[in-house]
Design a protein around this nucleic acid. Structure first.
Length: 398
RNA sequence: GGAGAGGUCGCAUAGUGGACUAGUGCGCCGCACUCGAAAUGCGGUAAAGUCGCAAGACUUUCGUGGGUUCAAAUCCCACCCUCUCCGCCA
């Protein structure tokens, strides 16, 4: 959630953010209208409540003022109904107003402004066949059986692919532990209020499997990791808190029908090792670069060619002020594809979740960041990049 | 799944309708004493919202949501969570 006070003071900044993200609405004006009314009525209601309190301090006073009290109670009740309605509208707008964009984010609609800022290992680019053909032939992947047992866009990982996957999960986790991250195994399900506070709902709901009343399979452990600190006031000297989570992730992939239908590049269920950092506000840009460097180092350690992309305004999710993607080379697709992303959410999540930092002279909201360290897509990149002309794959042993 | 107990300020605990403006202890912060510390003494110690330049005022919050009442931490209803015992079960 954005800072309402900031919005009241500088609505033009938020207008610009919406414009640059190519979201065409007049949310800001509508919100400010509702907010103004809400403030007026809250002031009125509080005054009425105070009056009522004064009139019923004890039984005798209450008896004497019976009529007045009834009258005020009726007024309060009317105002409370109005307030509830306005509050609902306020919340609805707030859940949709995106974070301000960082100044260095290139402006452009959709993915048009995404900018490659670094290429690593370009010379190793080779052509080859897709992970799907390779793995199916080697008996490492079975999507047909998965379609029978479970449905489309699920996978069985088998043999070397399965064991290498587990090794890489472990390797990624250990890599982060060595850098001081705390390993966490999170729940895979979350309540709607967590996903909303995390900045994913309401828009993200259509991409999420619902398993029970107000219970969803999370598409990433990010929300669960950040949620671990919900409602906590942290000591400045304990920051940054760096977590490396592991979870199986579930995504409906709504709106991507027909995209990446072969193999397991885009599936409903996959495992992910995720980094989350909670830090002081003055450190979040530095922390963002640090998480990116973690990703670069890890992907480099697997000897994979990749490029780093600074994501443009139209493609940056609402909770983030800036995002980088790592796109790894996929010889079978003959292009770079997203395997990692890392976002700075500043105080957007911590404000909703109540994650604060106690400093000497003030308590303020922490900043949160999240980034991928390893997913099954990285395994696919590794397989495609290590294929031999005879249709075999030489996977690294360590 | 069955039976019972419970959820109060960072932690522990008191509080069974108006005196709760939530007490007490611990912790924490400040001050005094001290070369310094411990101990001791004194004072302070929640969050959120609205109004206000500010000082401050007011409101809300005792697991959550409803209800009863002039008045709810306290009574009623529903739900959530924790613990104990029984049953079942990786």
């Amino acid at each position: 959630m954005i800072d309402v006070e900031l919005l009241r003071k500088n609505p033009q900044d938020f207008q610009e953010s919406l414009k640059n993200r190519f979201i065409k609405t007049d949310y800001i004006e509508q919100f400010l209208g509702v907010d103004k009314k809400w403030r007026e009525i809250i002031t009125l209601t509080d005054q009425l409540r105070a009056q009522k309190k004064d009139l019923s301090t004890d039984f005798n006073t209450a008896q004497t003022n019976q009529e007045k009290i009834k009258n005020i109670s009726a007024q309060i009740s009317t105002k409370e109904k109005e307030l509830a309605n306005l509050e609902k509208q306020r919340k609805e707008f707030l859940s949709r107003i995106p974070n301000l964009l960082s100044k260095d984010v290139p402006i452009g609609e959709g993915e048009t402004a995404n900018t490659v800022i670094k290429k690593i290992g370009e010379d190793r680019q080779v052509e080859g066949i897709s992970h799907d053909q390779l793995m199916t032939k080697l008996g490492w992947l079975n999507t047909e059986a998965a379609a029978n047992t479970t449905g489309a866009r699920f996978r069985y990982l088998l043999s070397e692919a399965a064991s290498t996957h587990l090794k890489l999960v472990s390797k990624a986790q250990q890599f982060a532990i060595n850098k001081g991250f705390v390993p966490v195994i999170t729940p895979v399900m979350a309540k709607s209020n967590l996903l909303e506070a995390g900045g994913f709902f309401p828009d993200g709901e259509e991409d999420t499997f619902k398993v029970d009343e107000d219970l969803y399979l999370s598409g990433t452990s990010e929300y669960l990791l950040v949620g671990l600190y919900a409602g906590k006031t942290l000591k400045a000297e304990d920051l940054p808190i760096r977590l490396v989570g592991f979870s199986t992730c579930f995504r409906k992939e709504a709106g991507s029908y027909g995209k990446d239908t072969k193999g397991m590049f885009r599936v409903h269920q996959f495992d992910k090792v995720e980094m989350v950092s909670i830090c002081k506000k003055e450190d979040s840009e530095k922390e963002h670069q640090f998480l990116l460097s973690m990703q670069e180092e890890f992907v480099s350690s697997l000897n994979l060619p990749f490029q780093v992309v600074l994501i443009g305004s139209g493609d940056t999710e609402k909770k983030a002020i800036k995002r980088y993607d790592i796109e790894t080379w996929f010889p079978g697709q003959n292009k770079h594809r997203e395997t990692h992303s890392v976002s700075n959410c500043t105080d957007y999540q911590s404000r909703s979740l109540g994650i604060k930092v106690k400093k000497v002279d003030a308590t303020e909201f922490a900043h949160t960041l999240n980034g991928t360290l390893y997913t099954e897509r990285t395994l696919l990149a590794l397989i495609e990049n290590n294929q031999t002309p005879d249709g075999k794959v030489n996977l690294p042993n360590d």
